[in-house]
């Protein structure tokens, strides 16, 4: 009698393996990427320990090294610059493996930003592959889940506002607003790191979005559950009341690297020198 956990693990390894395979496919295209110069302002996020929402041990802290993060999401105009330098990523040329059929859905053609959406609005209908390619061409990378969550703990005044219940409630309010992705970035005041719009405009791709397995059977996800093991990380949520975090992790769990949703975009990160 085989332990069902083993079977699940094998399946998970298989699915993780497939992602790697897809990444390898990406390599030849990435080689051809032309660099784009980005004037995007980045803010330095000082590293430190934080209580990750999802972590390996129930009371462990996760260390995040100092890094730079774009102060806003990548906009339509910025993405257009990238497309002009890298037409292989344009709507008509992109390899189907890297983005599903709704890639840049609202764009009128390869190099024309949609009419009803501001050039300074975040670019959406973007796949993880496309986001990664952009970041690379700008000499940057996507933030990790930990980096993103670490920077997103900040309210306008506090770098860590997670102890404030009003902060979570405020995020939930922002999440319930619709169609904000059509408006220019900097819709809300910057947080204590001088980073804009971490909440309430778009969902953002992260480098390792799929490292946390939210299965969709989320009632099981609330507890340590062996079926959720992948690369050794189990889901143990640190705060059952943090509905906003549940929503983000559910969102990350529901997407695949080629998905391109109406309200899914990205911002870039970079290692800090020290």
């Amino acid at each position: 009698m085989k332990n069902p956990f083993c079977i699940v693990l094998v399946l998970l390894m298989f699915s993780c393996g497939r992602n790697q395979e897809a990444e390898q496919h990406l390599t030849p295209v990435q080689k051809e990427l032309s660099p784009v110069s980005s004037k995007k302002k980045m803010q330095k996020i000082e590293g430190g320990y934080y209580r990750a929402f999802v972590r390996k041990e129930s009371d462990s802290l996760t260390y995040v090294s100092s890094f730079y993060l774009d102060e806003t999401a990548i906009t339509n105009a910025e993405y257009l610059t990238f497309l002009k330098a890298n037409p292989q990523w344009s709507k008509s040329k992109i390899i189907r493996l890297y983005a599903d059929s709704t890639y840049l859905k609202n764009w009128k053609n390869d190099f024309e930003i949609p009419e009803d959406i501001s050039p300074d609005a975040p670019v959406t209908n973007i796949s993880w592959f496309a986001a990664k390619a952009y970041a690379q061409s700008a000499g940057k990378r996507l933030p990790t889940v930990d980096e993103w969550e670490y920077a997103a703990r900040a309210s306008e005044n506090l770098k860590d506002a997670t102890e404030d219940p009003a902060f979570t409630q405020h995020i939930l309010q922002l999440y319930q607003q619709k169609n904000n992705y059509k408006k220019p970035v900097k819709q809300h005041p910057a947080n204590a790191w001088k980073i804009y719009d971490m909440y309430g405009t778009i969902w953002e791709w992260t480098e390792d979005f799929s490292s946390v397995m939210i299965t969709g059977e989320s009632r099981k996800d609330n507890t340590t559950n062996e079926t959720l093991f992948c690369a050794g990380a189990s889901v143990t949520s640190s705060d059952l009341r943090n509905y906003a975090a549940f929503i983000r992790f559910a969102m990350r769990g529901s997407v695949k690297a080629n998905y391109t949703g109406n309200n899914m975009g990205f911002r870039c990160a970079k290692d800090a020198e020290n």
Binding site: T215, G216, E217, R219, M251, S254, T260, G261
Partner: peptide, 15 residues
Amino acid sequence: GPGGGAEATFVAPGQ
């Protein structure tokens, strides 16, 4: 069946 279909139907917007 597991989750009454919950796992099998977990869908992102537009999917």
